[in-house]
Simulated assay, not measured.
Amino acid sequence: MSKKMNAIVAIGYGSPEVLKLKEVNKPEPKANEVLVKVKTASATKADAMMRTGKPYFARLIIGIKKPKKEIPGTGFAGVVEALGSEVSNFKVGDRIFGETAFGFSANAEYLVVPEDGIVMRMPENLDFSEASSYADGHLTSYNFLKEIGKVKPGQKVLINGASGSLGTAAVQIAKHLGAHVTGVSSHRNAGLVKSLGADEVIDYQKTDFTKGSEEYDLVYDTIGKSSFKAVKGILKPNGAYLSPVLQFPLLRDMLITSITGGKRAKFEATGANKPAKLKAMLADVVEIFKAGKLKTVIDRQYPLEKVAEAHRYIDSGRKKGNVVIYNA
């Protein structure tokens, strides 16, 4: 068996052109690890932001001059190829999916994950293309709506960026939790958002949702294009503005509102949670899928060697739902 594999390597920070297809050493599983033959991986807005190395203070974590983990990508789905000597929960041939979090490395033909990491067997009726995106939009939106936002039946939730990876998942999860959902998207994507269960859709090209008269219990800004200051006027007295997009003003507003109370701003890096918590939330998301309440919207699929092209498409801002990378 070859000890080499193809992988995408980030040679630095910058445009999609920093992503190069290279032959690298195939990883070998440690005692507690599983070697996965990757069938599909996700390509996300977060991946594209990591590629640019911005915001700059994020480099303190991911690498100053270039990524510490040179192979990008976090969400994956594949087949167990080999097991470490201490692995007991999986067997060779198992169809599995999950998230490498700060381990990255998913844009490759093989990767290794710890047995007790964010990895699960795939439900029989879930395919590889869908599964690789679960730990991105689905898991993140579940965390923000259920765990952080604590959405309750009857509450009013507005989702900005409702046609993206996080947004398409959020519309469905918020409806599953019993909320009245308003999605914000372009007119071109309004039909998609409505089909996923949104009660109302606002065309951001015609209407500034922050200037409306409707009040919301929660505004979930999946794309980080608004702000707590901008939406404060449409939040109910104890409402919250949530966003997974790391920006200094949001961190400042989160600190201030945690002291003042009332309307709040909240941010969290979902991937920074402990693997056990993330795995439990992923299991909850799978149950929503099994109940027929969660569809995965896939916009485009690219072969591994065209990850740079996938990133260019993501950077265009025209992405609907998820972009998937596949190995032939």
Rank of each mutant, 00 (worst) to 15 (best):
K66N: 09
P72F: 00
G12H: 07
K277W: 06
A174E: 04
E200G: 12
D217K: 10
K279I: 02
K54C: 05
K45S: 14
T257A: 05
D94K: 02
I64R: 15
D203L: 12
R51Y: 08
K3M: 14
F128V: 01
L192Y: 12
E130I: 00
G14I: 01
E17C: 01
L158G: 10
A310R: 10
D221M: 00
K45C: 12
K232F: 05
L111V: 01
Q172P: 05
G161H: 04
A280H: 09
G317T: 12
D253L: 03
M254A: 14
L21P: 04
V36Q: 09
G63L: 08
T222L: 04
V285F: 02
M254G: 00
D253W: 00
L235M: 11
G233C: 00
S226M: 04
Y134Q: 11
I96T: 05
A41I: 12
G93E: 04
K152D: 09
K263V: 08
K274I: 08
P29T: 05
Y241I: 03
K4V: 07
A131E: 02
K175F: 04
S243A: 10
A269P: 07
R300Y: 11
S85L: 01
Y142M: 06
A169Q: 09
F128N: 00
A308N: 10
A131D: 02
